[in-house]
Design a protein around this nucleic acid. Structure first.
Length: 639
RNA sequence: GCUUCCAUAGCUCAGUCGGUAGAGCACUUCCAUGGUAAGGAAGGGGUCGCAGGUUCAAAUCCUGUUGGAAGCUCCA
């Protein structure tokens, strides 16, 4: 009797008994009819299964609806199948690759004879609608390896056969069938295609079979799918917002930077963009100098021998730029470390001198693949706010803590939330076990004493030492890796760095690499998107635009401009012969923080009429008050 | 680097079936002297990314190339 019963535990802790072989769907039905209607799949002992799954042993079970992440996962997976089915219907000779779920959606890789473009996507969407409206039941089939092989040979699906060959022999192969479409798939899937309510194909691109550039190129169609239209709309408007904020577009509109064919991947900063960069550097200098960093500057180009010594030649030369002058080979620096090592070696240091903190706004060149370039976010030359800190072993922890606080201070100034990841010793690491132990412990201790939540990436550290990475979250909740703190035992070794300890012995220091912005260029790009081009006052290229109502007010405008400029405020007067509304519009489109309108009333009363960026209304205030407010906001770097 | 798509005035874009180019904004000049998101008029500006090819004729079709976008790959 016992053997005919399975005990099923539900998420709320309740246990119920069912006959052996009861399907998940049946269980859902027993719980409630509405649950049965909305059920998409089940989760048995943490494994997602179809509704048709038969319960044969005691287990925990939750019924997945579209309201759970897992349920949406299933929905997206089925969407991928529907996509493939639609493509097969529309185009002859389609060979299926794989169709997995990705963030927000899915894709399917397929080999087609013709190449798809965005117009084709609409046609495919239409066909997908037909499949969905057909509400085909999705059947799970279990077949033997041979049967599956025969089937895919009949269907002429070479990629599927290749996948099949990689599967463990002897195990049952699962296929999923909806209408005329059948696919090799682990599943699980929705009960029927009609469950898909909201999807959209987003783009098409090429992708190699199994991600290997030696293999065939397949066409990958991307789509997004959500539980309902509302979520889909929300996602699409998020994309729209992201597009509006695209730093490449805003960079052009606001005249911040440009690119030119003459130097692919290398940004040119226009006057307004350079102001922002300078402000970023100024801020960084202030913060660093109060943390006892010494700023240095090293050559852009150093001879090849140096890079051979540092190990960059071995590990990084494919990304480096070279040049030959006077029969000597030179390389443009891709990193600043070797230069800083040479500076350290220029002196004999006592243990009392450490830590030595060398900071540089170091312009580096790295040859990135042309396809990897992306505005300021991925470039071939950029400026790192780099620093190398030379410490004694027993200083590692306190120094890391100091760097951590520095980074926290900087990110908070921009209003960034951030998350932290700790990466530990990888397999192919170099260096002394004891040193690894000490430094990993140090990093952990810092994170623990500062009470920081962090993600641990076991084995993901650099081969020369463990590291802490900082990921900032921008206004659209997108995450960007920026800051990093890395310990390095290799560089001091390679450059034979030493300091003299209490016993007058030569001892090797440990090097801490650290960057806060990471790449100033990239950070700038992130800031543009984060603020949607409307920089906080201290960063704004033009902080206040003075707008005279007419020519007769120019003198007064000039006098207040002078006064503000004396205080370091960046002020422009729009003295063009245009109407007020026109000038207000221009200033708003340039996202200038303050617009100060000056007319008869203002001249008479020594006031200005101030309108802030993004506001519909303006208010009159005394020029003196405005001046003080602006200066204070700039000095405080308020947001 | 690979795949696909794209490249027309400073910017955003239109240009049908192959018949050597258009709009809006911006710019210049003139009129208007104005109170919070575009006042009016006139004018200048393009070897259609570059190099070949097909054709009586190429922005348009073909090949190559440069740059860009998306994705892949890479990121000691």
């Amino acid at each position: 009797m016992e053997e005919n019963i399975v005990r099923i535990q539900f998420p709320d802790g309740q246990v119920k008994e069912f006959p052996v072989g009861t399907t998940v769907a049946k269980v859902a039905e027993v719980i409630s009819l509405s649950l049965r209607k909305n059920a998409e799949a089940g989760k048995v002992d943490n494994q997602i299964v179809d509704l048709s799954y038969e319960l044969n042993r005691n287990a925990s079970l939750s019924i997945l609806t579209q309201d759970s992440e897992d349920g949406i996962h299933v929905l997206r997976h089925t969407s991928a199948h529907v996509l493939a089915q639609a493509v097969k219907r529309l185009y002859g000779n389609v060979k299926l690759g794989i169709g997995p779920v990705i963030e927000d959606g899915f894709y399917y890789d397929m080999k087609l004879e013709q190449s798809l473009n965005s117009d084709d996507l609409h046609a495919i969407e239409k066909e997908m609608e037909k499949v969905i409206n057909g509400n085909f039941e999705i059947q799970r089939l279990e077949v033997s390896y041979d049967e599956a092989e025969r089937l895919f040979e009949e269907n002429d699906e070479p990629y599927k056969i290749e996948i099949l060959k990689g599967l463990p022999k002897g195990e049952k192969i699962t296929l999923y069938k909806q209408g005329e479409f059948i696919d090799l798939c682990r599943g699980p899937h929705l009960p029927s295609t009609g469950f898909i309510k909201a999807f959209k194909l987003t783009r098409v691109s090429g992708a190699y079979w199994r991600g290997d550039s030696d293999n065939d190129v397949l066409q990958r169609v991307y789509g997004v799918a959500f539980k309902n239209k509302k979520d889909l709309e929300q996602h699409l408007s998020f994309l729209e917002e992201a597009e509006k904020r695209d730093h490449r577009k805003l960079g052009k509109q606001l005249e911040l930077f440009m690119f030119s064919e003459e130097a692919p991947g290398m940004p040119f900063y226009l006057p307004k963009g350079q102001i922002v960069r300078n402000e970023l550097e100024r801020f960084s200098r202030e913060v660093q100098s109060s943390a006892y960093y010494d700023e240095v500057r090293t050559p852009f180009m150093m001879n090849q021998e140096l890079w051979e010594k540092s190990g960059h030649w071995d590990h990084y030369h494919e990304n480096m730029y070279f040049s030959e002058v006077d029969n000597t080979k030179f390389a443009l620096k891709p990193m600043n470390c070797p230069g800083h090592m040479l500076i350290f070696k220029n002196n004999l240091y006592s243990y009392r001198d450490l830590p030595i903190r060398l900071a540089e706004f170091g312009q580096v060149h790295r040859h990135e693949y042309s396809g990897a370039l992306n505005g300021l976010l991925r470039v071939r030359t950029f400026c790192q706010d780099d620093a190398h800190i030379f410490v004694r072993e027993n200083q590692i922890e306190s120094e890391i803590k100091q760097v951590f606080n520095l980074i926290d201070q900087v990110y908070r100034t921009f209003g960034f939330d951030y998350s932290v990841e700790l990466s530990t010793r990888p397999e192919d690491s170099l260096g002394d076990d004891a040193l690894w132990e000490i430094s990993e412990t140090a990093l952990r201790n810092v994170l623990d004493t500062l009470n920081v939540d962090y993600q641990l990436n076991e084995g993901d550290g650099a081969f020369y030492g463990p590291k802490i990475d900082f990921h900032i979250k921008d206004a659209l909740k997108r995450s960007h890796q920026c800051g990093t703190i890395q310990l390095d035992f290799q560089m001091p070794e390679k450059f034979d760095l030493t300091y003299v300890n209490e016993k007058n012995e030569k001892v090797r220091p440990v090097v801490i690499h650290r960057a806060i912005f990471g790449s100033i260029d990239r950070f700038f790009g992130i800031l543009i998107e984060h603020f949607a081009g409307a920089f906080p006052l201290w960063l704004a290229p033009v902080q206040a635009q003075i707008i005279p109502v007419s020519k007769v007010h120019w003198d007064y405008c000039l006098s207040i401009q002078k006064e503000l400029e004396k205080l370091g405020v960046r002020v422009k007067i729009d003295d063009r012969n245009e109407k007020l509304g026109y000038k207000i519009r221009e200033a708003q489109m340039q996202k200038i923080p303050y617009m100060a309108v000056v007319g008869d009333n203002e001249v008479k009363e020594e006031t200005i009429n101030v309108r802030e960026y993004g506001e519909q209304r303006s208010k009159s205030e005394s020029f003196g008050d405005f001046k003080n407010k602006v200066v204070q906001q700039i000095n405080e770097r308020s947001l």
